[in-house]
């Protein structure tokens, strides 16, 4: 009861109140006016559909080899050609999109969850602030790929370990982002009021402060999705990710690299897929920021 009188974030579930519904409508209207963001959204939607329906969309078995059909350029039978083992590149890209998107989403989730918790704790409890943020500074000091390689060297090369390695990389940025927002929100009067009404720390943190941090988290996560996919591809390119013969874009670029002079399509198409999906997430992220960030929004 007592919460309803207090200011809330703009991210309440739709339909809760006419006010929230109006906010969402305004968000959609403004977002749809941003053409580049819409392009990003369409690209991501296409890749998502591709990943979800991969087994039905792929024209060939992505790991079935047909050596006599190796190194074929794009043709009617193989739209994007075949690789050095005669495997259909289109099918490998389609099935590989599952891995790339999954790594992107899970790695970002790992980073966002851990980083947000650390940021909340650091911003809310001054005693922990120095300790936690110095640890984050240490993490930030490592070049991201080097840190990821070190993590994989310890854990061993596998898909799940790639997610962890990539996720760890983004923890410090989330922590800083959330900490700074927490620091400003916790001094707001409504927080004081909630505390005066007898709310405990966890209620204040998760019911009042966290919702107010969501805007920057969502914007950063969208941008981070692209970065995660790129990092995962880099690790696979280096042979540290998913192991052959399972298709993954970064690994496909690596395998095609030796053929760059004679059959450039092998490395080009998966490279293009990485480029497109990363660009899609970046455009989407930029658009979201324009709409959600009060400083850039025109309203």
């Amino acid at each position: 009861m007592r919460d309803q009188a207090l200011p809330r974030s703009g991210f309440d579930a739709p339909g809760v109140s006419p006010l929230a519904g109006a906010r969402i409508a305004r968000f959609v209207r403004r977002f749809s006016r941003n053409r580049l963001a819409m392009v990003g959204l369409v690209i991501i939607a296409i890749f998502l559909i591709m990943a979800i329906f991969a087994p039905w969309l792929a024209p060939y078995d992505p790991i079935a080899q047909d050596l006599p059909a190796q190194l074929q350029p794009p043709s009617a039978a193989h739209w994007l050609g075949t690789d050095d083992f005669g495997r259909d590149i289109l099918s490998r890209i389609i099935v590989g999109s599952r891995v790339s998107l999954l790594v992107g989403v899970l790695a970002t989730s790992i980073g966002a969850t851990c980083g947000t918790c650390i940021g909340l704790a650091a911003g809310f409890y001054r005693r922990l602030d120095n300790l936690l943020m110095r640890i984050m500074d240490i993490l930030l000091a490592f070049p991201s790929v080097v840190l990821a390689i070190a993590v994989i060297a310890v854990l061993g090369p596998s898909l799940f370990n790639v997610m962890i390695a990539v996720g760890i990389n983004s923890i410090p940025t989330y922590a800083r982002l959330v900490r700074s927002t927490t620091l400003s929100i916790k001094e707001k009067e409504f927080v004081e009021a909630t505390r005066a009404l007898g709310s405990g720390d966890s209620r204040i943190l998760f019911r009042h402060i966290l919702p107010n941090c969501l805007n920057p988290i969502v914007v950063y996560s969208t941008l981070q999705l692209g970065t995660s996919i790129l990092s995962a591809s880099i690790l696979s390119f280096l042979g540290l990710g998913i192991q052959p013969p399972n298709p993954e874009w970064g690994q496909m670029v690596n395998a095609g690299r030796g053929w760059l002079r004679d059959a450039p399509h092998i490395a080009t198409f998966p490279g293009l897929a990485i480029f497109l999906v990363v660009m899609g997430f970046n455009l989407l992220g930029d658009g979201l920021r324009d709409v959600l960030d009060p400083r850039t929004s025109r309203a």
């Binding site: 790991i63 079935a64 080899q65 050596l67 050095d84 052959p244 013969p245």
Partner: peptide, 10 residues
């Protein structure tokens, strides 16, 4: 060697 054995693998 990896290429040779990817063929063996299949």
């Amino acid at each position: 060697n990896e290429q040779i054995n990817q063929a063996v693998q299949a």
